[in-house]
Design a protein around this nucleic acid. Structure first.
Lengths: 206, 206, 206, 206
DNA sequence: TATGAATGAGCCTTCATTCAT
DNA sequence: AATGAATGAAGGCTCATTCAT
């Protein structure tokens, strides 16, 4: 077993711990998840967890990275459907809604860590980065198809993704505590599309 | 002042504990707030807290009630500014934004407890009720001024408040992790008003 | 309401507390019975219990008195059946066994307090007195009927009641942890009678 | 000494805790013995006690096992003196009496746990088992010597050990709360032997 | 005579962390 | 690289006791 082999094993274990932590945190929430729980979920001993991470805080901040990346990836994929901007918007909306409905572990963890981040600034960077990246993804996608289709917005480009993603996130929040029926979901989808249609207009020939 | 007098002191203390809990939770978050902390903040002993509340859970659920009510009241006031719907919308938007900026303790606590509620269903009712009440407030306000001004929406009335409040909540979320500058705030405000303007149209003469 | 009336009320409440304590202790055992439990059982407040008794220890020692007296009375009655010594013995044996089977609260409490008494000498006197009184009861009864029937024992009179009551108490103990069936009960009853018959013999004419 | 060596320390500590618990419980009784007391007595931290035992209940039930086994062993040895049944009986009687007089810790603890067992059924099995085993010991001893000496009882074999051990246990109880003097002890010893002599008779030639 | 409020010590338990192996 | 053992601080909670009313 070479040095490389060792290194690899360590890296594998470390990742196992992070993934176990995601599962544990998603299941029980930060306030009810102990290092023991995580170790058990990872099939390792408590000592091993502390071998890989200096402290629980340290581990959690790695978890934040991991989850933020996972969510970023989800968003990226959601916005890469083919079609017109409206079709993409619809696809993204559906994808994200279904992710929330299924209770994707990373999303639960992110929600939890966002709250922890209020008081632990160390946790904020990955989450902030996630927000920024998500908006950037929307921007680049929109810009691309806008160019292709000769569209433009009646709003500043800095506003569109923020407003759009904030709306989607806010809807998810409301959905959790007071889920509407399928008809309402559809109505909201239509409303958003309608609004988008009034905002995305053909570019005047210059 | 006989039987009443006896109970009055208890009620006062109980309220003190709840208010102390709000402050403590707002400052350190649920996961880092102990009953001791709350007791100290209330100027009482740990035992006294448990005299008034069967358990920490019990106390926290009262806190959730309290905060949800406080937020509801804030929202109610925000939407009762005088003027046209658009003016009210602007007032509400500003009011809520400033509340978030100041870091109103009740809002922090609500954010925290929303996450706790994911895993502790007992906490959900007050929060759900808060969402429902907030939307109802918007509905009643809009309906009233719509009638007065002969306006109507191009969207179903069930969709408007959900979409509107979700957007505001989502914006607050994004704001926290990636605050925009004042110019962006203004741009977003304008955008929302613009969208509203396209949605709220004069009622056709029947 | 005269001074007497007050005094009477106090005495009544005090007795209520003791009786409530007996029930509570019988149900949950000393280690799991709090002053609160007792107060609740008595329909009074915790404060009232401490008005009547200086401390929990004080109350418990009154309870010990009460229960020891109750058991003494039970034993007294059990040995006052009519008939020959053997018949009384049988009657007493049955009475005591049934008392234990039914789980008479005073007996449970006495068992509990006997253990507490190992380490709290203050509790010992009433229990010791109970043992002494019970044996005295047996002695006086036996002596009376022995005289009437012209019997005598082949054992010193100091030994008989101790041996007899110890045997009955010991049997109760074994019964609790490893109850025998009815047939065994009968066999033991017969055995004791048989032994008694060999010990109680006609007094030689002098 | 690889995997084994690792576990050995734990087993040793675990045993230390149990033994410390026996001492602490014997000294202060269940109701007045905390996990802290036990840990201190064992020279370990409170945390260590909980590392070895899930809960106080768990520990206490192990203690019950331990003490019941110790008592069983004592009884076994007491009945294995050489000689005729009567001589053994006398030896056993003396041995057990002296054990009680010395206040053997295991006996105190058993007395205590017997009372706890009234309300905590989990504690009963070891104690029941102890009673059963003790009687079995007496049975096997008696049977053996009876055969050797051509004796038999006039009582069913199921009755003898129950009656005998119950009597001894009952005597111990009375002794504790109202100790007799040495003369009484002797008288009782003689009485028991006398009774035994009338019950253990030569087997008729068949 | 009795109560409701409050206290503070102590209890059982959990848990992040350390360390020898 | 990983483990089992142990620690010690802290946490939630119970409870006997006190006291103003």
């Amino acid at each position: 077993m070479t040095a490389r082999g060792r290194y690899r094993k360590s890296a594998v274990s470390k990742r196992q711990v992070v993934e176990a932590a995601v599962r544990a945190l998603a299941t029980n929430g930060y306030a009810h998840t102990s290092v023991s729980d995580i170790a058990a979920e990872a099939g390792l001993s408590k000592g091993a967890v502390h071998y890989h991470f200096e402290s629980k805080e340290d581990l959690v901040s790695h978890v934040a990275d991991h989850c933020a990346a996972a969510v970023r990836e989800r968003v990226r994929q959601a916005w890469q459907a083919p079609g017109t901007p409206l079709e993409r918007l619809r696809s993204a909306l559906r994808e994200m809604r279904s992710a929330r409905r299924e209770g994707a572990p990373e999303l639960r963890v992110i929600a939890d860590l966002m709250v922890q981040a209020i008081n632990e600034p160390k946790l904020r960077p990955p989450i902030s980065a996630m927000f920024v990246a998500n908006r950037a993804e929307v921007v680049s996608n929109l810009r691309e198809t806008f160019d292709a289709l000769g569209l433009e917005t009646r709003l500043p480009m800095s506003v569109v993704p923020r407003l759009l993603l904030a709306t989607l996130d806010g809807l998810a929040l409301h959905d959790f505590f007071d889920p509407g029926d399928a008809a309402l979901d559809d109505a909201i989808e239509q409303a958003i599309e309608e609004i988008a249609a009034t905002l995305f207009v053909p570019k005047p020939v210059s």
